[in-house]
Design a protein around this nucleic acid. Structure first.
Lengths: 199, 199
DNA sequence: ACGGTAATTGACCGATCGGTCAGCTTCTGC
DNA sequence: GCAGAAGCTGACCGATCGGTCAATTACCGT
């Protein structure tokens, strides 16, 4: 089999279908994405989609599951590493890199996490997000602190994926610049130990 | 006709249907909402929905159109009133009140503004949002400034509507407290004239 | 060359979609 | 009391949904 890394090998159909599905799920939503659209977009037939993935739900699992795994790992490391300001700063960088590398998947399960309640993979995502909130917010956090977390997570996610709508003009922005700007904004929102008054 | 304000009058069917539709659109998405579900939720038949509203799209227009009108008015006043720090602070308060009073509608057209592109009422919403971004961000705003706006708008919206997921515990929080906390966070994000360094 | 497995597809299924229409009830002005 | 408008509904339409299945094609080791 030509699975050598130097040889491009044949692009695997399952990967193409998974990628096409992820794009559809993120842009038009899971419920509004049809297997026919996904198949057309990837250049296959609807039957081929159901050959590689047992169901539409299994396709969602394949599309966003790995990203949820990464998030869980990220969260586990952060919880294990303490909550000092330095640790939080490191976490923010890792979190932003995670967002940048998993924009479509994150957008999918953050944006549709409530409407798709009931799907196991979505429940897993919601649990991870809740854990994220709990680990960043101290238990006795003020409402403003909790609000800061919600604004930061949702805002960063939305800005990355759909944000092109809001950016003045439509020029391409380098990921590295976006990374820096996002880390800056998130640091302002999440680092609460810098003596800034709550209001 | 019993349209006297002192008498509760009969609850208008079209209002019940519009409210049920708005809740469905916001929670499960426009495309994933069926007229049958909306009708069931409001206690009518699907035919009744199509009697009061010519189409599913017309129902969306009725559900979120008025909120878009309010946003356009808000934006127009802000543009006409100058961009001083004081004016921005006033605008933020008005904007938060708008969010609190139109959570479902705002969540609908912000969250689905891209996937529903093509529907006239959604185009109107997207135009208003773009205008909002342009009027808050100076033309020469840095990427971090633009990012701040995106995070603020999307984050505030998401936190208000779906945010119950993230708030520690599930106790009911008074709207007034949410208002104060949200104004505090948005002020930090949007008021750039306080000498806080960009990084 | 050949047998077997993986990959792909069109035909088809019941269910549901948005939408139309005719008919039935309820209310209202006269 | 009665005509007519308004409100409401079930039956029905073509299209599309997610999913099944049998048949066909492409590829493989031997």
């Amino acid at each position: 089999m030509p699975s050598d890394a130097s040889v491009p090998s044949r692009v695997r159909a399952s990967d193409e279908l998974r990628q096409a599905a992820l794009e559809q799920f993120a842009t038009v939503g899971f419920a509004a994405s049809s297997l026919q659209q996904i198949a057309d977009h990837a250049g296959y037939s609807k039957s081929s989609v159901l050959y590689h993935y047992a169901s539409k739900e299994a396709l969602l699992e394949a599309a966003i599951g790995p990203s949820i795994d990464l998030l869980e790992t990220l969260l586990g490391d952060f919880v294990a590493g303490g909550r000092s300001a330095a640790a939080q700063a490191v976490f923010i960088e890792r979190f932003v890199d995670f967002l940048l590398g998993n924009r479509l998947a994150v957008h999918t399960f953050v944006n549709q996490g409530q409407s798709l309640r009931g799907l196991p993979v979505i429940e897993r995502a919601n649990t991870a997000i809740q854990g994220l909130a709990d680990s960043i917010c101290a238990d006795d956090a003020s409402l403003a602190e909790q609000m800061r977390f919600g604004v930061a997570l949702a805002g960063a996610t939305y800005t990355l994926v759909a944000g092109a709508t809001f950016l003045v003009g439509d020029q391409q922005v380098a990921d590295a610049d976006v990374r820096d700007a996002l880390i800056s904004v998130l640091s302002e929102l999440l680092l609460t130990a810098d003596g800034r008054p709550t209001r």
